[in-house]
């Protein structure tokens, strides 16, 4: 499997789409975590909402780095992670390279295992990069607003990195599963994004009014991702300064367990499918 991990890395690192996604990820985390909050603090926001002032600013300062850096992971970063997962598995079908890999000698499971390990490591690198980029942005915001630079304790940062990683790896493996199941990228991306961006939100909208929908949503990947962020201090959607995708439906522990279960389920299902099906 080591050989498969290395080979997978060569593919990921040299693939332009990987870098494009990483750059978009960094831009979005900056825009939603720092640029918009800074401007709403300055009162230049022209939307219907009143400037949320101090509250918006506090999220953009170093002290809240951990929650701000991961607040986008349930939504846009999750969607981008899913995209990376779909591309990693689905493209092999699109380009028909899957038959080449599987006839080189490794077992089918080590090919997929190598892919998943490489993706998980890539996700960790991107999450760490998010913290570095956001940390730098928070220092900039602090200095131009004459605010103090108080870093959160190391334990909080580590928990933030861990939670962010768990969330995006879960989405990423979900994408890898969809790419494997649908043997391609186009449909898998559609299904994944419609799920993550539309269906989860619709279910959540009804969850507050219909009881059994509420039960269902407690076990959806997006809800649990959002709840994990909320548990680490992110403000929920609907609250002042709240972030779309962040919700307080379930506790942090519940969320972490459900996310872990999804992550494992996606990996196992992808393995079963690849192992059992003909490569046509």
């Amino acid at each position: 499997m080591n050989a498969s991990v290395v080979a997978e890395f060569m593919k990921l690192v040299k693939r332009p789409a990987t870098w494009l996604i990483a750059v978009v990820w960094m831009l979005l985390t900056l825009v939603f975590g720092y640029v918009f909050p800074y401007f709403s603090y300055r009162g230049t926001s022209t939307g219907p909402g009143e400037p949320v002032g101090e509250q918006a600013l506090s999220g953009a300062l170093p002290a809240e780095l951990a929650s701000t850096a991961i607040q986008g992971m349930p939504l846009f970063a999750g969607a981008l992670a899913l995209l990376l997962g779909v591309l990693a598995t689905g493209s092999e079908y699109g380009w028909d390279t899957v038959k080449v890999l599987l006839t080189q000698g490794p077992r089918r499971l080590s090919v997929l295992g190598g892919k998943l390990v490489a993706l998980a490591v890539l996700m960790l690198a991107i999450v760490l990069a998010t913290f570095v980029v956001d940390g730098a942005a928070s220092v900039v915001v602090a200095s131009i607003t004459d605010s103090p630079v108080n870093w959160p304790p190391f334990g909080e940062l580590a928990r933030g990195v861990g939670a962010g990683w768990l969330i995006v790896v879960m989405w990423c493996f979900g994408g890898a599963f969809l790419g494997t199941m649908l043997r391609g990228t186009a449909l898998a991306v559609d299904v994944g994004l419609v799920w993550a961006l539309a269906i989860e939100n619709l279910v959540r909208a009804f969850g507050s009014v219909v009881d059994f929908v509420d039960v269902v949503q407690r076990y959806l990947p997006g809800t649990n991702a959002g709840s994990l962020v909320a548990a680490l201090g992110g403000s929920a959607q609907g609250q002042p300064g709240g972030t779309p995708g962040v919700t307080e439906v379930v506790s942090g522990t519940h969320a972490a367990v459900v996310l872990g279960a999804y992550l494992i389920a996606f990996a196992v299902l992808a393995c079963v499918l690849l192992r059992r099906r003909d490569v046509l």
């Binding site: 050989a3 080449v100 080189q104 000698g105």
Partner: peptide
């Protein structure tokens, strides 16, 4: 190179 990796 990628294929060679898989083939060891």
């Amino acid at each position: 190179r990628v294929f060679a990796r898989y083939a060891k």
